[in-house]
Amino acid sequence: MSDRPAKSYGIIATFQTAPQLYHAAEQVRDAGYRHWDCITPFPVHGLDRAMGLRRSIVPRISLAGGITGFITGMTLIWWTGAWDYPLIVGGKPYFSPMFAFPVSYELTILFTAFATIIGMFVLNGLPMHYHPVLKYEHIRRGMDDTFFIVIEARDPRFNAANTRALLEKAGGTAIAELEA
């Protein structure tokens, strides 16, 4: 392994407390960076706004899943009971949205849950068992009690010296370069 990594992924800075991270994130956001991230051991309340993130689009995927589930339930019950093999049971109609409702309702919830989780994984690009950030030797603390800001080298505003200075000014310590 050479002394200098062949290609840099970006720069990582350490912050000891949630408020420090929060204010640093505001500064990085205001500096106009787009390809950057915070690493936190728990969801920090309000950090989305400090990072300038837009509202997650997971709910749209969930809604699509829910609608699919409801239509699946109704169609299944109509097709099996009134179309494929109509059978009189207890003198009741072949199909009615009333008796089809409980099952369709459950399928709405089932499909919503799957859509939500699959949507969350796809949007997050998970599973991804390898990531340059995970190679950082102290990243374990990011799951425990320490906070990090990572600014990626592919960001148009990225400049090794200036970015490092920004993170230093924002209160970051142990600033290090990440290998790609």
């Binding site: 991230d37 915070c38 690493i39 936190t40 051991p41 969801p43 920090v44 950090l47 989305d48 990072m51 993130l53 509202r55 997650s56 997971v58 709910p59 969930s62 939500t116 989780i117 949507g119 969350m120 994984f121 949007l123 997050n124 998970l126 599973p127 991804m128 068992h129 390898y130 990531h131 950030v133 995970l134 990243i139 990011g142 799951m143």
Partner: peptide
């Protein structure tokens, strides 16, 4: 763990989910 790395961009979707 699916390669979870505590990214706040992930937390944002995660919390919504």
């Amino acid at each position: 763990a699916m390669g979870w790395r505590g990214s706040n961009r992930h937390w944002s979707n995660y919390e919504m989910a």
